[in-house]
Design a protein around this nucleic acid. Sequence first.
RNA 1: GCGCCCGUAGCUCAAUGGAUAGAGCGUUUGCCUCCGGAGCAAAAGGUUGCAGGUUCGAGUCCUGCCGGGCGCACCA
Length: 689
Amino acid sequence: MRPIPFPGVWGTSTTVCYQIANEQLSEELERVTAGLSKKEAKRLVQERVRERAQAIAAELAGWLEEHGDFARVEAVNGYLNIVYDTGRFANEVLRTALASGPAFGRGEPRGERVMVEYSQPNTHKAFHIGHLRNVCLGNALSRILRFAGFDVLEANYIGDIGLHVIKCLWCYLRFHQGEEPPREQRGRWLGEIYAEADRRLSYRNDVVELLNEIVRSDQIFVQAIDRMLKELWREHKVGEDIAYLLGQIAHGREIRPDAFYDDQTIVKFWPIVGRQLEQELVEAQAAAEVDPNARKRLEQLEEWYERWRRLAATIDWWPHVPQWEREVRETFQRWERKDPEFVRLWEETRAWSMEEFLRIYEELDVHFDVWFYESEVEEEGRQIVRELLERGIAEISDGLPVVKIDEKLGLEKETYRTLPILRSDGTTLYSTKDLALTKRKFEQYKVDRAIWVVDVRQTLYLQQIFKVMELWGFEQASKCYHLAYETVMLPSGAMSSRLGNVVLYEDVARRVLERAREIIEEKNPTLPPDVKETVARQVGLGSLKYGMLSRDNNRVIVFDIEEALSFEGHAAPYIQYAHARACRILEKVEALPEGPYALDELTREEIELIEQIALFPDEVQHAADEYKPLVIANYVYELAKRFNDFYRVCPVLLAPEPTRSARLAMVAATRQILENGLALLGIAAPEVM
RNA sequence: GCGCCCGUAGCUCAAUGGAUAGAGCGUUUGCCUCCGGAGCAAAAGGUUGCAGGUUCGAGUCCUGCCGGGCGCACCA
C-alpha cells in the first residue's frame, strides 16, 4: 500500500492485483509461451499479466465500491486505487494531530534499548565541519529513534589519549612551553599545535612524497634531473646520495626518506627543485595561453609548486625528524609510566579541549547521556588482549599482537584481514580500547543494540572489531551496527590539517550567525534585540544542520561556505518561515475551534496538505528503520512546500465559516508537525523570523 | 591484488521495485492596497555513465565494462 501518486487525489494504491495475476497465470503462461522466441514470449506474458491484473482490479474495485466505505474505488492500469472520503479521513487526521500535539507521530514503545555512539572528537585536535556532520547525524538519529519508540542512550567517546595527544604535547613542551594560549580559544590553539606536530613529524615523508609524485608524472622534470644533480654536486659533494637519487629516478623506483647518507642532501637539493618547477611553470603558463589543453598541466604545476613552497619554508626541519620521532616515543613512555608532571599537563590541556567541545554541544543543543573516555578503557582493553592471547585467538606476529581474523574464521578469501590489537611496545591502540568499550556498552549499560556513527573509512576496522568480539565469544557482537556516513570534502578536495585547509566549526558557525543577524536586521528590524539574537541562532544553526542532514548518509558532502550562508530555497529557513507564517495566522484567533470540521469540499492544495500531514507517523518509522534523518528532512520540506501552496490559494482568516474553522485546524496541525519534524533534526521552529 | 561507496537537468541533490524521474541554485519573464516576498507563478533544461540480465514493471536488484572517491599490520 502506498499513497496514490497523483496530485489532488487522496487515498492509497495497491499493486496486489499484479501478484494475484502472476499466481493465477503462471501455469497457463508456461504452456502458451512454449516454443515462442524469448522476445515474443516476453511480450505475450506482459500483455496477459496486465490484462488480468486490470480485470482483477476492476472486479475488486466493483466489490469495494459497493461494500466498502470509500469515496471512490478505481482500477487503473492494474492498480487498485482507493480514494478516501476526505470529510471523514481528514477530520480523523486533524483530530489526532491536534489532540496529540507534540506527541503526534510518536511510535509505540518498543522495549528495546539502543546506544548511539557519535561525535567522538579527539582532544588536542581541531573540531571541524567533518565532526559537525557526525554530530548532526548522530543527534538527529537519536532523536528519531527515541521518537519512534526506542529507549535511546546517546553516548560520546572522547579521544583524550593516543598518539595524537602525545604528539601535541610533545610539540607543546618542545616548542611552545610557557606561551599563553588565547583565553577563549585554548582548544583551538591546541589543535594548531597538533597540526604543527603532525607537519613536523611527517615532514620527511611529505617532502619525499612530493618528489616521487613529480618524478612519476613529469617527464620534463625527469629530463632535467642530470642538470639538477650536477648543480647539487657543485654545492654539496655527497656522491652516495646523488647516485641514489639518480638510480631511483632512472629506474622509476620510489625515493625513500630514510635512505639518505647525509642530512643536508635534501636541504641543499630543495631549492634546485623549486627553481626547476618555477621554470616549468613559466613555460606552462605560456603554453596555456595558446592551448587550452595545457591548462591541466598548469594547474598540476601550480599545485606542486604550492606544496614545494610550503615545505621549503621549513626545510631546516629535515635533519631533525628522526630525533623528534625518538622524542615522541619517549613522551609516550612518560604517559605509560604515569609521570605525574606529564599527567598534570595532560589533564590541563585536555580540559582546554573539553571546554571547547562542551561549548559547541551547548550551541548545537546536543546532550549526551553517557561519556566514555579513551583514557579510561586502556587497562580493560589490555586485559582483553591478554585473554585473547591466552586463548589463542590472538597471536604475536613480528612482535605485534594481532588477530588473524580470516584464518580464525576459516575464510579462504581475504575479508577481515588482520587486526593489530596492541603496539609491540605495549602501548594501546584504538582497537585495544574499542574492544573494551564494546563490552562495556552491553554489560554496564545493558543495551540491546549499539550503533556506531562513524566515518565510512572505518568500515573495515569496525567490522574487524565486531568479528574479534565474536571470536572472543561475545554474544552481542551481532547487535553491533556501524552506521557509516561519507566524508565532508571541500571544493578543493579532502580536508587535511597537514595541508592547512581544514574548515573549523567555530569559523563557519560565526559566519553563519553573523549572516543570520544581518538578514534579520534587514527583514525584521523592529524585533526586540534579544529576540533577534535568538532567531538568528535558530535560523543560522538550523540552516547549517539542515545542510548536513539533507544529504543521504552514503554521499560525500562538498562543503561550500557560500551555500551554507544562503538561506534561500531548499534549506531550513524555508521550513522555519512556513512555521512562522502559520504562527502569525494562529495568533490572531482566540482559541482553536473544535471539530468536526467542514472538510467535504476541499481544494487540491488542501487535500495535498492534509495528505502530507497524515504521512508523518509512517515517515518517522521509516526514518528510524533505515537510520536516515534525510527522510525527515525531505518530509518537513515537502510539508512546508505544501503549506505554502495552501497559503497562497486558501485565505484562512478571511474565509467564511465553516471553512475558516477547517482551515485554522489545518494551519494548527501543520504548525505542530513542522515543529515536531524539525525537532527530530535538532532544528528549532521560530515563531517569528 | 582484495573490498566498499558514488555516477540522475549546466551546478548541488531527491525519488519504501510501481503509474508522467522531482526540488533547489543558476538563466529568462512576471507577482507586494490582499493572513509576512527568507515567499509565489511561468519558461527552458533528462537516452538516470555504457552494455547485458532478472521482473508483469528497473534510476532502484544482478553481471560485466567506463569514470570518480575511499579502505586494507603497530593513526584514530
